[in-house]
Each structure stands twice: as structure tokens, then as C-alpha cells.
């Protein structure tokens, strides 16, 4: 066991669970300002921001649902991936014992909670070798409520008169957010994958959630759609926690990937306002967190 690596990963998980990224917090501050003084929606944002501050100071979870753990790992050539996998599982166990994480791995057949967040495909680990000489570990803690309202569509969709183009994609994203109402803990951060297969659709939609608030797609047409969707979705009036208000989403991030000619999946990964993602980089044994 590489104990140093494990401890660095525990710190990554601690930060992810207890310290909301600055860009997400800034978006919540902006959302608060857009609500009328004295309105209940403004009151909800006041509480959300207070909770974020309390959690950071006390180093306790922002939300008790510390989510499913998704690790996206990149290692340099020659780095033993088994060392990394062992350290990731040990870090999840330690972070659970330290109350940074709730035990969230339940045996689907017996209903028994493993107590450590470790189980079959838990945490989810995606690991690849890259050309850089640094180690990069990104983590996303995604709650069950937001996962339950995430969804996958096929185009064309006759009920929405949606075809296989960006106009069709737009309609499906509108539908996913309308259907979710407040159940995914709005205002949400919306990750969208166009194309891929059923599996890569969800994976790529979640990948979008690592983008920082305001970071637009490199593709100008997609970037335009992202901006339009943010504006349109925020006219739905669903508001924070679905109790009404002007901010229903904090941002929309769309990625496109190749698809089979016969399929056109649009996958929507709904992330709650507590968009808990963190990145750790180890370069020449120096660790940094973002």
C-alpha cells in the first residue's frame, strides 16, 4: 500500500465533500442576487450559501448524500495502475471512517451496506495512461437524487417532434430539466452527451460536469446552444429545490461524440447544486488540488 498516495486521495475526497468549488459557489451567489429580496427563493439561496460556509469551516459534508464516487484517473507511462487502484479503495474506506463520506455502497441482492463505500464497481474507477509525467485524479461525488433524474433519450422523438439535430437535442434537454422539477436538487448543473452508445453516453455526459461554470464548448454551434439553454431553462420557474424562482440551472455543458449510424442518443446527467468535483495533480512528488 502506498500510504502517502492514499492520504493524498483522502484529502482529495475531503475537499470534494466539504469544500464546494469556488466557481460553483460564485454561480450560487449570482443566482441569489437574481431573486427578489424577501422572496422564499432568495431565502433558500441564503441557506444554501450559509451551509456551504459552515461545511467548509467545520470540514463536514456539504450534503449528507456524499454520492457515488467517480474517479477519473490519468497516470504516466510506467506507473503501476494496481498501486493506484489499491490506494483509491483504501482512501474511500478511510474517508468514510473519517465521516467525510456516508457509506453508500449497498449490496443490491441482500440490501447490506458494505460500510466503506467499497463494493462491486464502487467506487467507479476509470483509469488511463497519458503522455504527461504527472498523475491526475479527478473525483465527482454525485448524489442519488440527481442520479435518479438523469436520463437517456433516443432521437428522433415523435412526441416532441425532435429530429436528429441540435434543435432536437435542445428539446430533449428542456424535457429532462422540466421532468426533473426540483427532485435533483435544483438549480442543477446539466451535463449532456450527444451520440455515443448507451454506456459512453452516460460516461461522456458526466465528463462534462468537470467543466467549470461558464466554460463554453469549443464548437461555436454547441456553445451557442449551451448559452441559449441556460437562458431558456431559467424561464421555467422551477427555481431552487423546485419551490419556484428564477434560477433552475447553473449551467449546461454539452459534448458530442461519434455514434453508430442507426443510433442517436442524447444523455443528460443532472448534477445537483452541490456540484462536488475536485482535481488532484501530483507532479515531481508535489501535490496540488483544484
Amino acid at each position: 500500500m502506498d500510504e502517502k498516495l492514499r492520504d493524498r486521495l483522502v484529502e482529495l475526497l475531503r475537499r470534494a465533500s466539504t469544500d464546494l468549488p469556488a466557481d460553483v459557489e460564485a454561480a450560487l451567489v449570482k443566482a441569489r442576487a437574481s431573486e427578489e429580496p424577501g422572496s422564499s427563493s432568495r431565502g433558500i439561496f441564503d441557506n444554501i450559501l450559509l451551509n456551504v460556509e459552515l461545511a467548509r469551516k467545520a470540514s463536514t459534508p456539504i450534503c449528507q448524500d456524499t454520492g457515488s464516487i467517480l474517479f477519473e484517473v490519468r497516470i504516466p507511462r510506467g506507473f503501476d495502475d494496481r498501486v493506484m487502484r489499491e490506494a483509491l479503495l483504501a482512501a474511500a474506506t478511510t474517508a468514510t471512517k473519517s465521516y467525510y463520506l456516508r457509506p453508500n455502497a449497498v449490496d443490491s441482492l441482500t440490501g447490506k451496506n458494505s460500510g466503506s463505500n467499497v463494493g462491486i464497481h464502487s467506487p467507479v474507477v476509470h483509469l488511463e495512461t497519458w503522455d504527461d509525467d504527472s498523475v491526475q485524479v479527478r473525483v465527482l461525488l454525485k448524489g442519488g437524487g440527481s442520479e435518479n433524474v438523469s436520463t437517456q433519450f433516443r432521437l428522433p422523438d415523435s412526441s416532441l417532434q425532435a429530429g436528429r439535430d441540435l434543435k432536437g437535442v435542445r428539446k430533449l434537454v428542456l424535457k429532462a430539466v422540466y421532468d426533473a422539477q426540483g427532485k435533483g436538487c435544483s438549480p442543477g448543473v446539466i451535463g449532456v452527451a450527444i451520440g455515443g452508445d448507451r454506456m459512453s453516453g452516460y460516461q461522456f455526459a458526466k465528463e462534462q460536469l468537470f467543466r467549470k461554470i461558464g466554460q463554453r464548448s469549443d464548437n461555436p454551434d454547441v456553445a451557442k446552444l449551451e448559452t441559449e439553454l441556460v437562458t431558456d431553462l431559467n424561464t421555467l420557474g422551477i427555481g431552487p429545490m423546485g419551490l419556484g424562482g428564477k434560477t433552475t440551472v447553473l449551467d449546461v455543458f454539452i459534448g458530442a461524440q461519434h455514434r453508430h449510424p442507426a443510433t442517436y442518443f442524447v444523455t443528460v446527467a443532472y448534477m445537483c447544486w452541490a456540484c462536488r468535483r475536485r482535481t488532484m495533480t501530483i507532479r515531481k512528488d508535489e501535490v496540488t488540488y483544484d
Binding site: N47, I48, L50, N51, A58, C185, M241, C272, A274
Partner: peptide, 13 residues
């Protein structure tokens, strides 16, 4: 009654 989702630390108090 609705409590505010995500406010884990605050409500624990």
C-alpha cells in the same frame, strides 16, 4: 414540509 436539499451540515446542527 420541505427542508432544503443539500444543506447537510446546517440541518445537522
Amino acid at each position: 414540509l420541505s427542508a432544503i436539499g443539500g444543506c447537510g451540515t446546517q440541518i445537522a446542527r
